[in-house]
Design a protein around this nucleic acid. Sequence first.
RNA 1: GGCGCGUUCGUCUAGUGGCUUAGGACGCCGCCCUCUCAAGGCGGAGAUCACGGGUUCGAAUCCCGUACGCGCUACCA
Length: 485
Amino acid sequence: MINKEVRVRFAPSPTGYLHIGGLRTALYNYLFAKNNKGKFILRIEDTDRNRYVDGALDNLISTLNWAGLTADEGPETGGIFGPYLQSERLDIYKSHIKNLLVNKKAYYCFCTQERLRDLREKQKQEGLQTKYDKHCLSLSQNEIDINLRNNLTYVIRLNIESGKDISFTDLIRGEVVFNTDTIDDQVLIKSDGFPTYHFANVVDDHLMQITHVIRGEEWISSTPKHVLLYDYFNWEKPNFAHLPLLLNPDKSKLSKRQGDVAVEDYRDKGYLKDALLNFIALLGWNAGDDKEFYKMDQLINSFSLERVNKSGAVFNTEKLDWLNAEHLRKLTNEEILNMLKQELINTELVIKNLSDAHLLLIIEAMKERVSFVKEFITSCPYFYSEPTEYDECVIKKKWKEDSPKLLKLFSDGINKIENPSKEDFESTLKNICVEKNIGLGKLIHPLRLALSGVGIGPGIFDLTYILGKEETIKRIDKALEIIIN
RNA sequence: GGCGCGUUCGUCUAGUGGCUUAGGACGCCGCCCUCUCAAGGCGGAGAUCACGGGUUCGAAUCCCGUACGCGCUACCA
């Protein structure tokens, strides 16, 4: 058992989309695996046929791949412990349940849904814990055989001995104890022949040689059932680590009702995968220092389960926006260029075709002023098409009586220069101001307004230079015409 | 109801008995820089460490109780 390779799994059920909480569970599993030079396995828990959603599996895998959390083994990659879809492992569960059946660790139950419902209701009314009453445990082998021969529907239940303490050591919470009196005789095999999560996950984790089960806190209550199963099979138990939940603003478990929870929603909103991963990594974990900005490899190097928190964390995206801007600024202009071009293709605005060199100038000028790639378009549309209106507030504040004359002077000055450089724009403007004995702002502000229609943006000489001589002159003329009237 | 888990600024968190008048980050506010907006720098407001008892010379930190929150309580995962 020494130096056993670390093997962890992310085991989602394909119900439509990857939940942000699921992404964090996957991330922690991935980080733990990579930190320990182990394997990250993707296993699909598709044992509930009622919840089958077409296309969910592909969506799940592609979203995981987008995030860069690619599995070392899984339905897509394959591996020697496959198949990795539980719906394809039915024979395996069938053979294992026999083992439990002959040892009386599991038993057939022929109770109808109605009986079960009535039983539950009665227990509830009496204020008792709702629990199966082991009614079918007393069936003789002969009765069972007859029922089976008559094709009565049945489930197979875990036979839990009463009055015993079951404990396990959770890597995050320490020792957790449950008494078997509070645990129900869980259904292991459903009437459709499919296993329940509780049975399949134990069998698979064992067969796939999973060393650490890292999953959400909502599983902590059912862990004793799993522990019991390992004991009944006489299998070595994996380590358990139950992660704190991601919460809604009202502290309930993060859900669709209170905002976007699908990873693809955040991808579509323009969040960088590195920023999203960085953000959710910090929701429940920190290295013990003040570091907040992490790239993937740094996350892998610093991660440890010991430093995962016990309490839930509200999924509040304020900090996510900031992290997105931080990650965006760390990207090279060329990397941003590719994303911007994609964004330009997707945009519905009619815009002129700009060269890569031109786009690179825009990126450089705007990099410090945006948080999202799409803002290279939305926060500075004037780079792509001339303004059609001019901010009234700015006109009121900055447009003075002498503004038209100054702009005209500037326009004429630029017009005389062949291929003006950024410095040419600057010296032209400064010379005018010196000559007229006025502050630079007297010209800069009206000029910005004329060129962009707004009062905010990158440095004025960046703006003029990126727009270029012809466009600058043209826009000054147009502004003069419109604003004066 | 039962069982389990949790509880430090609005939010994410540091803190593992004295270094703490509880530190950082986001957000918010102010100042500086400055052609505007950002970025950056500086500063501010913001937490009686859920509450009550212990233990100890000393507790956010250890123990007990209470409250509150959350999770589970299915032939769903």
